[in-house]
């Protein structure tokens, strides 16, 4: 949890794996990197066993690049496709059991706030739609009711992709899947609305067809969660295996879904806006002075 946890002891450089040395020399820790610089630095994410062309992988990769302080971040995940990649990053990863990711993250964040009161240590939950909307639903809602200060990111592929294609709460109505041959009979859960009601101060829905937007959304969510309150991001990350999308059509599918039901939405409270403007210099949230107004 500091810059010191990736370094090579003097004299041992030639015995250390090339990837590790590359990371120490060219990694993102202690620097400000952005998505536009990608390819010129060593990313914190390493090789992972996820399927070729998976949009979830792309989103996780962009998210890990976008963390404002990757060296001071802990990710929490659970069973599902996402953890296969998130656990392969140079960022500490905690494997919560199914259902308790947000409870683990609550404890972790409180512990870090007690242990490092003068530093920002970020906790980010990244789990699938099954791990958060179905199995982890109550823990997630209660962490929001308690206003725990961490970010929850849902990797919504609208199916239980890892276990053969069962329907989840986030599957759209009528979708026919391998393990749900009659089609789903209920609507998709409206999680962004639930998040607003439960007290999240920043809620956004994104599709990874726009890397810079993903970056800005994640940066804002993690920064707001440092002091203001819980934040929630819902990302459409299609499962090209269960929904039979050819890998070179994944982005076309993302564009179509964005037009259909996943429009970019951003909800941010006034308190969070002010925090971003005052503390982190977000000029778009600075209060505009109305010309002609008389100052008291």
């Amino acid at each position: 949890m500091s810059l010191d946890y990736v370094k090579v002891s003097p004299g041992f450089e030639k015995y250390i794996a090339k990837e590790y040395r590359d990371f120490v020399e060219h990694g993102p820790f202690g620097k400000k990197v952005s998505v536009s610089q990608v390819g010129t630095f060593k990313e914190a994410l390493e090789e992972h066993p996820m399927c070729a062309g998976c949009a979830m992988t792309l989103f996780i990769r962009l998210a890990i690049i976008a963390f404002p302080n990757p060296e001071d971040t802990i990710t929490v995940g659970t069973a599902g496709c996402g953890r296969l990649a998130i656990s392969q990053a140079m960022i500490p990863f905690v494997y919560g059991n199914y259902g308790d990711t947000n409870a683990v993250a609550s404890g972790l964040k409180r512990g870090l706030m007690t242990r490092f009161p003068d530093k920002y240590k970020d906790v980010v939950v990244m789990a699938g739609d099954g791990g958060l909307a179905d199995i982890g639903f109550s823990m997630m809602m209660h962490s929001w009711f308690r206003r725990e200060k961490f970010t929850t990111i849902m990797l919504d592929n609208e199916v239980y992709g890892n276990t053969g294609g069962q329907e989840s709460g986030m599957t759209t109505r009528g979708a026919v899947l391998k393990m749900a041959p009659l089609g789903k009979k209920f609507d998709k859960i409206d999680m962004p609305q639930l998040a607003k009601t439960a007290g999240c101060v920043y809620v956004a829905t994104v599709v990874p067809n726009n890397p810079r937007r993903v970056e800005s959304v994640i940066k804002k969510a993690v920064l707001i969660a440092r002091e203001v309150g819980p934040t929630y991001i819902q990302a459409y990350t299609s499962c090209n295996i269960e929904y039979a999308i050819p890998t070179d059509k994944v982005m076309e599918d993302a564009n179509n879904v964005e037009k259909d039901r996943y429009q970019f939405q951003e909800y941010i409270t006034d308190e969070a806006k002010q925090y971003l403007a005052d503390k982190w210099g977000y000029s778009e949230y600075k209060k505009k002075e109305i010309p002609g107004e008389v100052k008291a």
């Binding site: 998505v35 390819g39 010129t40 990313e43 914190a44 994410l45 090789e47 996820m50 792309l58 990769r61």
Partner: peptide
């Protein structure tokens, strides 16, 4: 253009050569 480096789902796979300006 560096779009392919941003859209590749695999990390550290499409790199960018700053001298020759090519991915």
């Amino acid at each position: 253009c560096t779009l392919c480096t941003q859209y590749c789902p695999e990390a550290n796979t499409i790199q960018y050569d700053k001298i020759r300006n090519t991915a």
